[in-house]
Amino acid sequence: VTTYKLVINGKTLKGETTTKAVDAETAEKAFKQYANDNGVDGVWTYDDATKTFTVTE
Rank of each mutant, 00 (worst) to 15 (best):
V1R: 07
V1S: 11
V1D: 15
V1P: 12
V1H: 12
T3S: 09
T3A: 06
T3L: 13
Y4V: 01
K5T: 12
K5S: 06
K5A: 05
L6N: 01
L6T: 01
L6M: 05
V7G: 02
V7Y: 07
I8H: 03
I8Y: 07
I8C: 04
N9E: 13
G10L: 15
G10S: 12
G10K: 05
G10P: 03
K11M: 11
K11S: 11
K11F: 10
T12D: 10
T12Y: 15
T12G: 10
T12L: 13
T12N: 13
L13K: 10
L13T: 12
L13P: 04
K14I: 13
G15S: 15
G15L: 14
G15C: 12
E16P: 05
E16I: 14
T17I: 14
T17S: 10
T18K: 07
T18F: 13
T19G: 04
T19F: 14
K20H: 14
K20F: 14
K20Q: 15
K20Y: 14
A21P: 01
V22W: 12
V22G: 09
V22Q: 11
V22A: 11
D23V: 03
D23M: 04
A24K: 15
A24V: 13
E25S: 13
E25G: 10
E25K: 13
T26V: 07
T26E: 12
T26Y: 06
A27D: 00
E28D: 04
E28I: 11
E28C: 12
K29C: 07
K29D: 05
K29M: 09
F31D: 00
K32G: 03
K32N: 04
Q33Y: 05
Q33A: 12
Q33M: 10
Q33D: 08
Y34D: 02
A35K: 01
A35I: 07
N36D: 11
N36T: 14
N36M: 15
N36Q: 14
D37N: 11
D37M: 13
D37S: 10
D37L: 12
G39D: 07
G39H: 10
G39C: 06
V40D: 02
V40L: 11
D41G: 10
D41L: 15
D41Q: 13
D41F: 14
V43M: 09
V43C: 09
V43P: 03
W44M: 04
W44F: 04
T45M: 10
T45F: 07
T45C: 08
Y46E: 00
Y46P: 00
D48S: 11
D48C: 05
D48Q: 10
D48T: 09
A49L: 13
T50D: 05
K51Y: 10
K51Q: 08
K51H: 11
K51F: 12
F53M: 02
F53Q: 00
F53W: 08
F53N: 00
T54G: 03
T54S: 06
T54W: 10
V55T: 03
V55Y: 02
V55F: 03
T56E: 09
T56N: 07
E57V: 10
E57Q: 10
